[in-house]
């Protein structure tokens, strides 16, 4: 959908370059860098997130940003809570592509019935709102980071498989592929070595925007208490714990919320830029 819009612009009169365009693109790169830096470097700081202080104390000496409802230092919590946010998102994406790419290739080049089964089965999965599946799973006591990641990955598989199937159909019928087959190269090597390579570009672009989606889904699930334990320093969990004390100690809620927001917006901005560049190159 965005393709047609961009193409239209190219055909029209050349757009004058806006003075802030450079600053905006620099911002798109720098924006997610800050929360990512906090998430990755934060755990290295010698801060203790053990409960001990007075609950919901305002910022002051000893606790630079105050404490949360459990009496934990907000600065220490914030610096530790980003790693699980990034780690779970990355794990979900890896799992989703590990399952989605083979099923998409199978649907594109396997037998007809295989294609039908994979695509119809995925259709059914699409009927489920993602949060719903996570909540139903949590109801039977299956909560925790591992289950959450597995379920969130499962929900992504249909879209990934569909994308892979659509992009792998044409390259899989090229003469080069026929020649490889005639030379007796095994089918799995044709698929992994040649066809999968041509799917790489669209997949990378997809991963960019899917990162934002998964981040959103996992944060919402953790906010609802479906994943990590309630004493985890994860940003979403800390926000949930401290929501009731928002008026008393706003820092404990607003700082992790701000970091999550910047991370989400930054991830989406970067994905958008990525998409634009990729489309420009492929033409």
């Amino acid at each position: 959908m965005t393709t047609s819009v961009r193409r239209r612009r190219c055909r029209g009169a050349p757009r004058r370059r806006r003075p802030w365009a450079g600053a905006a693109s620099a911002g798109a790169v720098l924006l997610p860098a800050f929360p990512v830096l906090v998430a990755l470097a934060g755990p290295l700081l010698p801060l203790s997130a053990a409960p001990g202080g007075a609950p919901s104390a305002p910022p002051g000496p000893g606790h630079l940003l105050g404490t949360d409802v459990l009496g934990r230092d907000v600065l220490a919590l914030v610096s530790r809570g980003g790693l699980s946010v990034l780690g779970m998102t990355a794990a979900t994406l890896v799992l989703a592509y590990a399952a989605g790419v083979p099923s998409g290739l199978l649907a594109a080049h396997g037998r007809r019935w295989m294609d039908e089964t994979v695509m119809r089965g995925l259709d059914l999965l699409l009927a489920f709102p993602s949060l719903l599946l996570l909540m139903t799973l949590a109801a039977t006591g299956h909560r925790g980071a591992g289950t959450l990641v597995a379920a969130a990955a499962l929900v992504q598989v249909p879209a990934v498989a569909r994308l892979v199937r659509a992009t792998a159909l044409a390259p899989g019928c090229r003469t080069a592929v026929e020649a490889l087959r005639l030379q007796g190269v095994p089918e799995w090597r044709v698929q992994c070595g040649y066809v999968a390579r041509s799917v790489r570009g669209p997949l990378v672009t997809d991963a960019g925007s899917r990162f934002g989606l998964v981040l959103y889904l996992l944060a919402s699930a953790n906010f609802l208490g479906l994943g990590l334990p309630a004493d985890s320093p994860d940003w979403a969990v800390v926000i949930e714990r401290n929501t009731d004390a928002l008026f008393l100690q706003p820092a404990a809620v607003l700082i992790p919320a701000g970091l999550l927001m910047v991370l989400c917006v930054g991830a989406n901005l970067t994905a958008d830029r990525f998409l634009a560049r990729h489309e420009g190159r492929s033409r």
């Binding site: 934002g212 919402s220 906010f223 949930e240 928002l246 706003p250 919320a257 927001m261 917006v265 991830a267």
Partner: peptide
Amino acid sequence: TVLLHAVPEFVLGLLLVAWLSL
């Protein structure tokens, strides 16, 4: 689009509560 769609509802909601209510 990018800004509002990216932010999870609970984050946006809390920021709005902090701004408008608090």
